[in-house]
């Protein structure tokens, strides 16, 4: 079942430009120069119920613009968008009841109050029945291990604790759709793991549909079955991580620790991409030569102490895609 449908979405912004100097400031009072930025050019995608989709792209690619359109905060210039059959900006309030949003850099909790009081107020804002609220809250407190935090004022929470509370706050009204904008930014390793495992449980066991924007490729690799990559307002890639890899490069890497640092290894089907002491990195195309065959070749010729096969790190893949689709 399709929950979210986005078709040919386009949105441009006018940004005021100020001329430098005194004269510019004076002129700025009367007339101002504008520059148009095409934040979304032609974006289309769909999300099905229960999917967890990574939405990635360089800064300024249009990620948060898309999320804002989906949340009903922003009206696009053209294109269509439906969330649960509704046009979000036309029915902002109805839409708001069905989505939860977490912005990693901000909190929706009340700064000076204990977490529990923010939860109470959110119950009223979303008009959740007390029994439903109690149940949802109990579950979230357990899943996110918030028991000890509920009576602490928000300003005293660590970033990781606050993020867990914010996740709970966004889900108290039990929305079927959740938008997560950089939920792991700035968190320490254990907190990141906690957030990831919570999001995973959420989709697997509760069937919540999640859109995750992030710069942390570990988030993507740990969580997402599907990745939508955008740059300059256009979708560059939409598919599984594996698809994304093969779209950019099929290359794989063999990292070999030689017994003799001076030993020569060569093969016409592979290229040496790095050599550091006894460690040599060789890259090859698995279509031209299978890994076992290549390994057998090397083993036959030189003494090898250790050896691993790697894919190109997802960061590099993404960086390469960004480069190839540089500024138009």
């Amino acid at each position: 079942m399709t929950l979210v449908r986005v078709e040919n979405l386009a949105k441009s912004f006018r940004v005021a430009e100020r001329c430098p100097g005194m004269w510019g400031a004076v002129r700025g009072l009367v007339a101002r120069g504008y520059r148009t930025i095409q934040a979304l050019d032609d974006v289309s995608f769909e999300l099905s119920a229960g999917e967890l989709v990574g939405y990635i792209g360089p800064n300024g690619a249009g990620k948060s613009t898309t999320v804002k359109v989906l949340a009903g905060i922003l009206v696009p210039d053209s294109g269509r968008c439906e969330v649960l059959g509704r046009v979000p900006w036309r029915e902002r309030r109805a839409n708001a009841r069905d989505v939860g949003v977490v912005f990693g850099q901000r909190t929706q909790l009340w700064w000076d109050l204990p977490v529990a009081e923010s939860f109470d107020l959110l119950r009223e804002i979303y008009a959740v029945a007390p029994a439903d609220h109690r149940r949802a809250r109990g579950e979230l407190v357990e899943m996110l291990d918030l028991g000890g935090l509920l009576n602490v004022p928000v300003r005293q929470l660590s970033l990781g604790q606050r993020m867990r509370c914010d996740l709970a706050a966004a889900l108290l009204h039990q929305p079927p759709i959740l938008y997560l904008d950089e939920p792991t930014i700035g968190l320490d390793a254990p907190s990141k793991l906690a957030v990831r495992s919570f999001v995973r449980t959420l989709t697997r066991e509760r069937g919540v549909t999640v859109i995750l924007t992030t710069h942390d490729m570990d988030d993507i690799e740990a969580l997402c079955q599907r990745v939508i990559l955008i740059a300059h307002g256009r979708v560059l890639s939409n598919g599984s991580l594996k698809d994304l890899r093969t779209q950019v490069s099929r290359e794989r890497r063999l990292v070999i620790d030689l017994a003799d640092p001076m030993a020569e290894i060569t093969d016409p089907r592979a290229t040496i991409t790095a050599r550091e002491g006894a460690r040599v990195t060789v890259s090859f195309d698995p279509d031209r030569v299978a890994a076992p065959e290549l390994i057998a070749q090397f083993c036959a010729r030189v003494a090898i102490r250790d050896l691993t096969i790697e894919s190109v790190p997802i960061e590099e893949i993404v960086a390469q895609l960004y480069r190839e689709n540089g500024a138009p």
Partner: peptide, 12 residues
């Protein structure tokens, strides 16, 4: 600072 967006996210 963009916190107005948060108000728009709520059904009020």
């Amino acid at each position: 600072d963009g916190s107005f967006d948060r108000l728009l996210l709520r059904p009020l």
